[in-house]
Simulated scan of single mutants.
Amino acid sequence: MTDDPIPGADGPELTAANVLDVDDDRYAADSVALVTGAASGIGRATAVALAANGCTVAATDVDADGLAGTVDRAAEIGADGTVQPVEGDLTDDADIERIVDAAAQLGELRFLANVAGLQHVAPIEEFPAEQYDLMQAVMLRAPTLLSKHAFPHMREAGGGAVGNMASVHGHYTTSDKVAYNVCKFGIRGLTQSLAAEGDGDVRAFSVSTGYVSTPLVTGQIPDTAEQRGLTEQAVVEDVMLGQSRTKRMMSPVEVANLFVFGFSEHAKHLNGGDLLFDGGMTGTYE
Rank of each mutant, 00 (worst) to 15 (best):
D21E: 15
D21S: 12
V22M: 09
D23Q: 13
D23K: 14
D25F: 02
D25K: 04
D25P: 07
R26C: 03
A28S: 13
A29W: 01
D30R: 09
D30E: 15
S31D: 02
A33V: 05
L34F: 08
G41C: 11
I42M: 13
G43I: 01
R44M: 04
R44E: 00
A45L: 01
T46C: 08
T46D: 13
A47T: 14
A47M: 12
V48G: 05
L50Q: 00
L50S: 03
L50M: 12
A52L: 02
G54C: 04
G54W: 00
C55S: 04
C55F: 04
C55L: 09
V57I: 15
V57W: 01
A58D: 03
T60V: 12
V62R: 15
A64R: 13
A64F: 10
G66N: 10
L67N: 06
L67R: 04
A68V: 08
A68I: 11
A68D: 12
G69N: 11
T70I: 01
V71F: 13
R73H: 13
E76T: 04
E76P: 05
A79N: 10
A79T: 06
D80F: 05
D80N: 09
T82G: 07
T82W: 05
T82Q: 10
V83N: 08
V83S: 08
V86N: 02
V86C: 08
E87C: 07
E87M: 10
E87V: 14
G88F: 13
D89C: 14
L90I: 14
L90Q: 05
L90R: 11
T91C: 07
D93K: 01
A94I: 15
D95M: 05
D95V: 07
I96K: 13
I96L: 14
I99G: 02
I99L: 05
V100N: 04
V100S: 06
D101T: 15
A102M: 06
A102E: 09
A103V: 05
Q105M: 08
L106E: 02
L106N: 06
L106A: 04
L109I: 04
R110N: 07
R110D: 09
F111D: 00
F111P: 00
L112F: 00
A113Q: 09
A113E: 01
N114A: 12
V115F: 08
A116N: 05
G117V: 01
L118I: 07
H120V: 02
V121I: 15
A122D: 13
A122R: 07
A122W: 07
P123L: 12
P123D: 11
P123K: 05
P123N: 08
I124F: 13
E125D: 10
E125C: 09
E126G: 11
F127C: 11
F127K: 00
F127N: 05
P128D: 15
P128V: 04
P128F: 11
A129P: 15
A129G: 14
E130V: 08
E130S: 15
